[in-house]
Design a protein around this nucleic acid. Structure first.
Lengths: 253, 253
DNA sequence: TAGTGGTCTAGACCACTTA
DNA sequence: AAGTGGTCTAGACCACTAG
């Protein structure tokens, strides 16, 4: 039987001298047993009281382990019924931007400021930034290259309000790196992000040095301040060969 | 001052008669205070001991509240230093497939089986399914329509192994709904997923009734069984107007 | 040394499910 | 009534940070 060897390498006791906390050890033991097939999707796990006795830990510690697995969508709990191994759920899959973040932190990545100027907001820009048509905005175009190859084309409109002089200086007009590295501005409360596929237009293909027709991922972002007013609206156009997102859903070892 | 009214509507005590648990109430109080600007990114929150005194709850309850906020990337904790409000982090953004999942559960969505037949695996298919070239596989083509409009074109190869007869019956060849609704197969241990942008080819544009050139989101998936062997390999082609993913990062009310 | 977060205990009481 | 998960207490001890 294929799974037998794996089962026998799973520890079944908590090592109190380990660096790893007991709740984490227990969660990993249970997950390894599930991964090895000892508990199949739909199966009920031992009750919390039983796990307390088996592993010699307190109820709170067992609960924390179970909660960890529940957060990872490995198990589901039902009051009065028990804890059960979950089936794989497509909808639980989540693609995150950490890859993108690490790419921008990479030394091989350079950011070139193509353009930065004051413009008057047209209907579209004014709508996104929640300002009046004809008001001023800062328009920025950047090209991000990885190993001297054009990878992302970024365009952004920033509100330009004499009463909010802080915006320009805080939003790191020339670098972008702050938003990705976590040292982002303290004036940003939240960002709304959208991702979709699009066809590149003439300008985009020239900047990114691709042949038309070309497909691209478009990542749109709007940043808001602590008064819930938009600060900036912008979007990345990514060469489709340069950017794809991967993830795993289900039981991971 | 714009934030004053908001601050005054934030409760500052735990309601012990509420249905909402104390830890959740406390987390929401702190988050509302942060959202209202009472604590800004970089600011230190009151210590856990202080929060215990202020709100009259035990240390474990305070910890649970803080952990909730830390899981949401609202705060970060540093042993020996304190708890601090985080800046918005681009990289923390995660796009999930719940929209897609609910779409497939929708009554207005229909799945049409275009084709299902046994084929012999070529190099590419054999590589993905980790079988020998020339072995049999099941090839399936499906069209998913939303309100009678073609939306997603799905193609999939399933391993066809006499020794694993369970695969075909378990993988819900004719419906697909299981994988999305959570009632998916119990033989699936995990799935690897990738998303990227692509240009539609002739066949795809005909099935989806679009004009060329057209951009599309491509969602590729490989399912594995509990012996870590591939069960199926397939991909969705989504009309780019039909599918986009949205998310919010930072402080959400 | 004082203050911080991190872990853990050994119970208690409650809500819910099943029989 | 018995068993399940869900919340909460009132501490304890530890590891880490800072003055």
């Amino acid at each position: 039987m294929a799974t037998s060897p794996a089962i026998h390498t799973i520890p079944n006791t908590i090592d109190r001298d380990s660096f790893e906390p007991a709740y984490s050890q227990l969660a990993n033991i249970l997950k390894a047993q599930i991964a090895a097939g000892a508990f199949r999707p739909g199966d009920q796990l031992p009750s919390e009281a039983q796990l307390c006795r088996t592993f010699g830990v307190s109820p709170m510690t067992v609960r924390r382990s179970i909660n960890l697995l529940a957060d990872q969508d490995v198990v589901s709990t039902a009051q009065g019924k028990g804890t059960f191994v979950r089936r794989v759920q497509f909808g639980a899959a989540a693609f995150d931007l950490r890859e993108l973040q690490s790419l921008l932190r990479n030394d091989a990545t350079t950011i070139k400021l193509l353009d930065a100027r004051i413009v008057t907001a047209n209907q579209r820009v004014a709508g996104k930034l929640d300002i009046a048509v004809g008001r001023s905005a800062i328009y920025i175009r950047r090209l991000l290259s990885v190993e001297h190859q054009p990878a992302f084309y970024h365009r952004e409109y920033l509100v330009y309000d004499p009463r909010r002089p802080i915006v320009e200086s805080e939003m790191e007009v020339s670098s972008l790196s702050g938003l990705f590295s976590g040292s982002g501005s303290a004036i940003v409360k939240r960002a709304d992000l959208t991702i979709c596929a699009t066809l590149m237009n003439e300008e985009e293909s020239q900047v990114l040095k691709t042949q038309l027709p070309a497909a691209a991922l478009l990542l749109e972002h709007i940043f808001y301040d602590f008064d819930d007013r938009p600060i900036s609206w912008g979007w990345f156009i990514a060469n489709s060969e340069r950017l794809h997102f991967s993830t795993t859903v289900g039981i991971q070892d």
